[in-house]
Structure formats: C-alpha cells, structure tokens
C-alpha cells in the first residue's frame, strides 16, 4: 500500500486522476477501521489532510460553502448557530476523539445509510444540500438527494474528490434526533432530521439507517408543507393540529424501508421514526412560535 501525500488540491486531483483506485483519507475514522478489519486493501492511500483549503468554510452568495475537511468539533463550535441541525447531528457522532478527527466529507465519502450528517444535509432548504465534487476534468454540483445511490455507494466518479458542500444558513428551526442503544458513542439504529423553511413555506426532512440509503420523506414533507400553508399557520403560528402531527409521523415511517439487523428490528425502526418525526416537529414548531422571525427570513404577510 502506497501513501500519497499531496500538498495542494491540484496535486490531490492529479493523483486521484492517475490512481482512481486510491482511497482518500481525511480524518481516517472510517478508513482506519476498514483497514484494521481487513475490509479494504487499497493499493494507494491518498491523504487529504495537508490540503488546507479543504478545512475552510465561508459564506458565499447567501449560502455557506463548507470544506469537506471541516471536523465535527469545528462544525459544532464555529457553525452551530448557522447550521443547528448539522451541529446537533455532529454532537451525536462518536466520542470527542472521533469528533476531533471525523469530517462530513468523510461521512459523505462513506455514504453509509447510518452516517449522521446525511439527514440534516437532506433536510436543508428546498432540495437539500449540494455536494461540490472536483476532478481534473472539472467541477460538478451534485444535489444531495442524487448523491446517495446505494448502500455505501455515492454518485462520485472514480477520479472525483469532494471539495465542499453547500448549505443555506438556517432560516428557521431545525432538529435532529437519533436512536442508539446506549447513551453515547453509538451507531444510529435510526435517525431523523427536520428543518422548517418559513420563507419558502417548506418543511425539509431526512432520515438514516432505515433504508439502503439516507432518504427524504418527501410525501411527509409535502403533506406538512401543504397543511401548514393551507391552514395559514406559517402566518398565524398557531398550535399544530394533533391529527396533522400524527399523520406526519405516519408518513415519515411509511417512507422508510428498514430491515432487521443486529442493531434493531425493522418494525422498531419504523415506530421510532414516527415518534422522532412527531417530537421533532413539535419542538421545531414550538421554536418557530416562540422565536422572532430569523433575520434573513422573509415574512410575507
């Protein structure tokens, strides 16, 4: 196994073009486990940690562009206000040691259905986050809902690397909730994220570990967005209709296609998703009702 250590992004892309079978390594918190377990024996490891621009983030045209190499710890401390859903998810990842090394770029690279960054990325704004992939051939912007193509498979081409992902700073309440059978350091049995987008009168969702890929519950989103709009609640900020909350929970559960495995049963996952969907909706709505409009949220009366 050869260890490639590009100093610049251009070198990294060139190396990946030359060796499409090179395995990128960022925090290494997935890669090292796979090497130790002998799951992967790549001919080349491509170390991205010397490429400093991967660890940058910046606002850009009303969006946030976050480098693939920004760690969970930094997401929590530096972006917790602007990306509360992703920060909440980050807080549930592993242990402090893992959060100090692990990155969302790596979570995307692994594309595991259990990755905790995925649900909030899916719930972000109308179509979710966007992944910016680079290769020597150029740049691709991949909508997040097209990024996950199968169990641990993403839309990345063999010569591509993830440079960054784009999200909208939160313009409404966001929540993330994750089931694990211990109270810390646990891979999700299932997880759920919700984001309210009052400006566009939309609700975004994402869930993990309950289908071959991370998924949005699109019907549930549509139902709730319509319901809130039709009942004038975006303006009135009135209490939610309990029947609508229940319906939302059921639709989220229905969007899942979970399996039985060592971490839990399919029926438990479905049930848990509906409970988390209902609870996180109630919490977000209560935040929305109690909050002044966020500064950049347009209020159309």
């Amino acid at each position: 196994m050869e260890f490639l250590r590009p100093a610049t992004w251009a070198e990294a892309l060139a190396a990946k073009a030359e060796h499409p079978d090179a395995l990128p390594i960022a925090g290494g918190t997935d890669v090292m486990v796979e090497l130790n377990f002998d799951v992967k024996r790549p001919p080349f490891l491509l170390d991205l940690t010397r490429v400093t621009e991967l660890a940058d983030w910046a606002p850009d045209g009303g969006m946030l562009r976050v480098g693939a190499g920004v760690t969970y710890s930094r997401l929590i401390s530096e972006l917790g206000d602007q990306l509360p859903g992703l920060a909440m998810a980050s807080r549930t990842v592993g242990s402090p040691q893992i959060r100090n090394r692990g990155t969302v770029g790596g979570n995307l690279g692994s594309a595991s259905p259990a990755g905790d960054a995925h649900p909030p990325l899916l719930a972000d704004s109308e179509a979710g986050a966007v992944v910016e992939a680079h290769s020597v051939r150029g740049t691709r912007f991949i909508p997040i809902s097209e990024f996950y193509v199968g169990v641990k498979r993403s839309a990345l081409e063999p010569d591509e690397l993830i440079a960054a992902y784009w999200l909208r700073p939160a313009a409404g309440p966001q929540q993330f909730s994750k089931i694990g059978t211990r109270n810390a350091m646990v891979i999700s049995v299932t997880a759920f994220a919700i984001a309210l987008h009052p400006a566009s009168r939309r609700v975004g969702t994402g869930f993990g570990s309950a289908a071959p890929t991370p998924r949005r519950a699109t019907e549930a989103e549509q139902f709730l967005s319509d319901e809130l709009t039709a009942s004038g609640r975006w303006e009135s900020r009135a209490e939610l209709d309990p029947a609508a909350v229940a319906q939302f929970g059921e639709l989220v559960a229905a969007a899942a296609s979970p399996i039985d495995d060592v971490r839990g049963t399919a029926s438990y996952r479905r049930h848990a998703l509906s409970v988390m969907a209902k609870r996180t909706l109630v919490w977000s709505w209560s935040d929305f009702r109690n909050a002044r409009p966020a500064p950049n949220s347009r209020r159309t009366a």
């Binding site: 549930t92 994750k178 109270n183 646990v186 609870r279 919490w283």
Partner: peptide
C-alpha cells in the same frame, strides 16, 4: 434524559 445528546426526548414519554 434517556438518549442523552442524541436528542430523542425533552421529557416526553
């Protein structure tokens, strides 16, 4: 709370 920072309940249930 049960679930800890995984944020599964704020006291419900």
């Amino acid at each position: 709370l049960p679930g800890g920072v995984s944020n599964t309940t704020h006291g419900e249930g």
